[in-house]
Each structure stands twice: as C-alpha cells, then as structure tokens.
C-alpha cells in the first residue's frame, strides 16, 4: 500500500498563499463560483444520503452569500456508490463538480471494485456523521453485547450476522471479530431495510444499523445492544459503547465531501468554508438530527486522519471479507 503524505492545513494555506503570490488573479478561479456547483450523490433521490444534499441545497439557496451560488444535486446511483464516486473523480477539477459519499469509498477499494480511495480526491471535510451499532430482535437470545461475544467465542462461525458484502456494514463486524477474538458467520442480506426483517424474524442473529434506524424501528422489535461511537449517544442513553465493553472499535458513517484531485486550493477552501458555515446553522443542524446525523462539521485534515485509520484497519480484513464467496 503506497502511503500518500497528507498535506497539513497550514501547508494548504501556505500553498494557497503561494499560488496567490505567484499568479495574482491569474485565472477566473478568484471569481469562483460564477455558476451553480454540481453535487454528485451516489444514491437514488430520496434516501438518507440524498436528504443531506437536499438540506444543504435549500440552505445555499436561502443564504446565497455563503457559497455565492446555488448547488445542483445530481443523483448517480449504482454499484455500491462507485458509479457516482468515479464521476466525481473524473470530473474537471475546477470546483464546479464535487460530491460526497461515506467510508464505502475505502471498502470498495479494499474489495477491488475500484482502484481508488479518498487519497485520489481532495477531501473537503464531512457534513456530519451517522453513528452505527449492532441490533438484535427483542426475542433474540443475545440481549447484550457481552452475551453475544461469549456465545460467539463458545461457538465459532455459528452466530449469523446479516450484512451487505463489501460495504462498511460488512467491515465493522469484521473489526469487532478481530478485536474481540471471535468468529461470526456472515450472511449477505442487503441494505438496512432488508437486514431489519431478517434480524427481527430470527433468520440472522444480529446486524449493523444506524442510530436513526434503531429509533425508527424501536416499536417493531429491533433492539440496539452496542454502539460504535466514542461516547454514549444522547438519543440512546442506555446503550453502551463498544469501548466501554472493552472492544476498541469506533466506526462512524461520515458524509465525506470530495472534489477531484487537482482542484485549486482557493476553490476547495471556498467550498470548505461554505460547508462549515452551513453546518453551523441551527436550522440545518436540526434537519440533520432528524436524519439521525450528528451535525458536526469534520475538518478536512481531521477527516483525512480518520479515513486513513479506516483504511489501515480495513485492509488487513480484506482476505476475510472476500471469503464470503459461497
């Protein structure tokens, strides 16, 4: 794995100043943006990812001064998001085409579906993140995380986890397996709306869900037993974190904003500034919370560190992930 040196923020600013000093008003980039910015969303219209884009679209339309232009949301679903992320990567690096995705960017690379990950983009920070956890049916024999791990230790390769192969929901249980020294049996089931009935009906024993799904399906017999957040969530105060239970796995689904590699620094800084301002807006924050997203803006350098960590943890698990070929 070639490791790429991540520019520090100070470095970025220095570079930006350097460019400015060398070419004062050299290009039209100083006027960025002078036309609407296209935002590629690698899912269909209407889903959770798409809603994030629509919230920001409304915000930038109501507060024109922040970005200086409207954004246009373009949905490009398919192949685990790789149709969309590839379109972002291959776009002209002029700042007029950006987009966002989540950690699937890294797992798709790990699974060899694509030959790029976040290193091949300019990372523009994250507009919040979703917290993930394990859920079981209320009538499941595994009502605690500890109980689940004990059983898994006693019966390796017997406890069934509903998953969506090759995506973060597949890699997080793999990480837990690695840290807690247990072995689960992986069953391809699909997206959250399919994992939910599979777990509740008892065809599989547990699965990963987002915080919002736990709240939405609480009345329909879905029970969270552990969350992979740094601290307990205010919305799910009774659910312990994996760290508390001695399993050091923290996994979030960041809304990672990406621009094609080579986008000028001042342009990407302008977008970063606009996103940061938008995420500080109380209206945007409350709308994001409704989607189960913690509405903190994650700065590009901090996010890059997180994504690098994800890559380092995911790559050793690839062999195991690809075993699911039955």
């Amino acid at each position: 794995m070639k490791s790429m040196a991540r520019p520090t923020r100070r470095g970025l600013i220095a570079a930006a100043i350097g460019i400015f000093a060398a070419f004062p008003m050299a290009s039209a980039q100083a006027d960025f943006p002078d036309k609407p910015v296209k935002v590629i969303v690698p899912t269909q219209a209407g889903g959770g990812m798409d809603s994030v884009a629509r919230i920001l679209q409304r915000y930038f339309e109501a507060n024109e001064a922040v970005l200086g232009q409207r954004i246009v949301v373009v949905n490009m679903p398919g192949a685990g998001g790789t149709i969309g992320t590839r379109a972002i990567k291959d776009a002209d690096p002029d700042g007029y085409t950006v987009g966002f995705w989540h950690e699937g960017l890294i797992t798709s690379r790990a699974m060899d579906v694509v030959d790029y990950d976040h290193g091949e983009f300019e990372v523009l920070g994250a507009t919040g993140y979703g917290d993930l956890g394990f859920g079981v049916g209320t009538s499941s024999p595994y009502q605690t995380f500890e109980g689940l791990l004990d059983s898994a230790r006693a019966n390796p390769d017997a406890i069934k986890v509903a998953t969506n192969v090759g995506l973060p929901v597949h890699f997080v249980p793999l990480m837990v397996q690695d840290k807690a020294d247990v072995e689960f049996r992986y069953v391809q089931v699909g997206g959250g709306a399919k994992r939910f009935p599979s777990v509740v009906a008892g065809h599989t024993d547990f699965a990963i869900f987002g915080a919002l799904e736990f709240i939405k399906w609480a009345d329909a017999d879905l029970k969270p037993i552990v969350m992979f957040s740094e601290e307990r969530l205010p919305t799910l105060p009774d659910v312990p974190t994996a760290r508390e239970m001695g399993v050091d796995v923290v996994a979030k689904a960041n809304r990672v904003w990406l621009a094609p590699k080579g986008t000028p620094e001042d342009v990407s800084n302008h977008i970063v500034g606009a996103l940061r301002t938008a995420m500080a807006d109380p209206e945007v924050q409350s709308q994001m919370k409704e989607l189960g997203i913690t509405p903190d803006y994650v700065e590009p350098n901090e996010l890059s560190v997180q994504l690098d960590e994800w890559r380092e943890r995911a790559l050793p698990l690839v062999e195991k992930a690809r075993q699911l070929q039955q």
Binding site: A79, G80, R86, V165, G166, H170, R322
Partner: peptide
C-alpha cells in the same frame, strides 16, 4: 453483469467501468 451483491465483486464487466452497475 455488474457488482455482485452476494460477494461484493465485479462480474462480467469486461473492464468496462460503466458496466459495474450492470444493466439497470
């Protein structure tokens, strides 16, 4: 053709990137 849901691998895309989502 396309990304196979069951093992997370590309199948029969013959290196054509557009085909990675198969035929919609």
């Amino acid at each position: 053709p396309g990304l196979n849901e069951s093992d997370g691998q590309l199948r029969l895309t013959m290196g054509i990137q557009d085909l990675s989502a198969g035929f919609n």
